[in-house]
Amino acid sequence: MEAKIRALLEELPGKEGALIPLLQGVQSTLGYISQDAVEAIGEVLGISESEVYGVATFYSEFRLFEPGEHQVKVCLGTSCYLKGGRELLERLSRSLGIPPGRTTPDGRFSLETVACLGCCSRSPVMAVDGVVYGNLTPLQAKAIIADLDE
């Protein structure tokens, strides 16, 4: 990992301001920011891993857990929020047994929130592996996930 980070750093103008580009680089190759990566970035840039983690968690762009086989994204944009997006999220979070931002221990599902999926007319919406489902009730959302799990 450390070697990969050093290679990524080579392409940047220097260590100054390199933290975010390095995080982006890791995310685009791995799909997420792993614990190893956080440690290695800290080592390479000479800052502590907690500081790296602090920056990574500040930006919603960065994902800190390995994405699951199926990626569930629940919209919490204004429209979805008002039409029950939070209830969708709570129901899914409970049935998958993970808080948003995590992946189930078996690696099957990861649950995330997004700010808008661009189809507010169908609120509340969620996207599973890129497919958008609209006008959902919490029970329908749960059923869609249950179907995938079979």
Partner: peptide, 20 residues
């Protein structure tokens, strides 16, 4: 020079903590 803790997350979730 320990850098063990940092601000983590943001908004209402913001707090002080360690990596992971």
């Amino acid at each position: 020079f320990a850098g063990a803790i940092s601000f983590i997350f943001r908004g209402f979730e913001a707090g002080i903590g360690t990596a992971f």
